[in-house]
């Protein structure tokens, strides 16, 4: 990515999330709360610094985009209103809005289903994992 592209994406993440990553004081309460911490490569407390430091490439290619459960615990507990969950959600959208960015494909779904899967699970997964 060129410098301009990075800057553009940083601005886009800030705009989509409505959060200010500069407010982060690196206390780690988000990572201390996250139920998916062990699944993530980039950890919740690092989201803000990846954006501040312009390392968007690492962030958008991280597994964490798909591991966040949107349980909102970090958003509820963040003492600085940085709300890491919103930042990673914005990064996820950057990816999904580009061609080929989907994490879930319609043709994969039939084999993921069982008789009990509630509609809520399908629509939620659909909305989180693809454009």
């Amino acid at each position: 990515m060129t410098k301009q592209e990075i800057e553009k994406k940083v601005e886009l993440i800030k705009e989509i999330s409505g959060c200010d990553p500069y407010k982060c004081m690196k206390c780690g309460k988000c990572s201390g709360s996250c139920p998916a911490f062990n699944e993530m490569d980039v950890k919740p407390h690092q989201f803000a610094s990846y954006i501040v430091n312009g390392d968007i490439e690492s962030l958008v290619s991280s597994k964490s985009l798909w591991k966040c459960l949107t349980c909102l615990a970090c958003i509820e507990r963040c003492p600085r209103s940085v709300q890491p969950g919103k930042l990673i959600d914005a990064a996820r959208q950057l990816v999904e809005r580009e061609r080929g960015g989907d994490y879930l494909h319609a043709e994969d779904i039939p084999e993921l289903l069982d008789d009990d899967v509630p509609q809520q699970l399908l629509v939620s997964a659909y909305r989180r994992y693809r454009r």
């Binding site: 690196k26 309460k29 201390g32 062990n38 407390h45």
Partner: peptide
């Protein structure tokens, strides 16, 4: 106690 060790990058 569920917390984080930021220097080790581990959830505790």
């Amino acid at each position: 106690v569920q917390g984080v060790d930021l220097l080790d990058n581990k959830q505790i």
